[in-house]
């Protein structure tokens, strides 16, 4: 009800054209009420908070040096000294996983950021300026013509395997998704009366686009991003698993799973734990994303 009256107010008072930001106190309260009722979303948030805590505190909580080899200790199962065992070079798996949490979370967030920034800019321009629309959206069609993982692989084929290039490849992969979603939000927003009102009082087009249309896309972008982070972490780990991402000896979960493949019969723990961590963190982001969507942007539910 309050949301409805808010939109009516902003539509009928041309003098008040400031955009409705999602951060007003009542909106935050409404968001929190819906979000905190969703138990699965809270579980997701807790999982991510735990991994984030581990990643931040990594240098202080790693029991061993993640790169230090100790051949006499190789391929040991979990024990009181090495809680999750050791790998083929005798390196402590728990320490490598803690170090790897930094890499995975960083790749997830930065890659999503790259996709979100480029995709949002493209979607905003395409939705707002008709002249640019068909050019930008044809470029997006071309990017969409590659199956998602193949696009990331093709980018790596050009740039070469490295952590930075993984972030770029994974980021580029999500650009069309952002562009399409933001464009459609812009198209529906720009017909609102308050946009006309802003134009009538002499606002510049670029100001209208950034200050009055863009804030309406923020919720959509937040929701999509929270769902994308998990996906980005998965894709990045696939690239590392295939040997196209983070290079040994640097620890990364996907690459650790790959390294353990050869010892799967005798030392399955090398593969099991990093994979489990990957699964948990991706599920955390998916749960959180679903919860954010229900609380911030229920219309996205069926998209």
């Amino acid at each position: 009800m309050s949301e409805h009256s808010a939109s009516v107010r902003s539509t009928h008072l041309p003098g008040r054209v400031e955009s409705r930001t999602p951060a007003s106190p009542s909106r935050v309260r409404v968001f929190w009420r819906v979000f905190s009722r969703n138990q699965l979303a809270v579980v997701g948030a807790v999982i991510i908070a735990c991994f984030l805590g581990v990643a931040i505190l990594a240098p202080w909580i790693m029991p061993f040096d993640p790169l230090e080899q100790s051949l006499p200790d190789q391929l040991q199962g979990p024990s009181s000294t090495h809680w999750l065992g050791t790998d083929e070079f005798g390196r402590d798996i728990l320490s490598r996983m803690i170090a790897g949490s930094r890499v995975s979370l960083m790749v997830g967030v930065i890659a999503t950021g790259i996709g979100a920034i480029i995709g949002t800019a493209a979607g905003l321009l395409a939705g707002y300026y008709r002249r640019l629309d068909s050019v930008i959206m044809r470029i997006m069609d071309i990017l969409l013509a590659f199956p998602s993982i193949l696009l990331a692989i093709a980018v790596i084929a050009i740039l070469g395997p490295s952590l930075t290039n993984v972030m770029i490849a994974v980021g580029i992969r999500s650009v069309p998704t952002y562009a399409r979603l933001v464009r459609s939000t812009v198209l529906s927003t720009k017909t609102h009366d308050y946009v006309d009102a802003a134009r009538t009082i002499g606002c510049r087009e670029s100001i209208i686009m950034v200050k009055h249309v863009f804030p309406n896309c923020v919720n959509t972008i937040i929701v999509l991003s929270s769902l994308q982070v998990g996906d980005a972490i998965l894709t990045a780990s696939i690239l590392s698993f295939l040997g196209l991402g983070v290079q040994p000896p640097d620890p990364e979960w996907g690459q650790m799973v790959n390294a353990g493949r050869g010892y799967i019969r005798d030392a399955p723990h090398i593969t099991t734990f990093p994979g489990l961590a990957l699964f948990l963190v991706v599920m955390g982001f998916n749960l959180l994303g679903d919860g954010l969507r229900d609380a911030l942007d229920p219309r996205m539910k069926n998209t």
């Binding site: 790959n258 593969t271 994979g275 991706v282 998916n286």
Partner: peptide, 8 residues
């Protein structure tokens, strides 16, 4: 949806 395909 959250399962790393290579791991499973």
């Amino acid at each position: 949806a959250s399962m790393p395909i290579f791991w499973i």
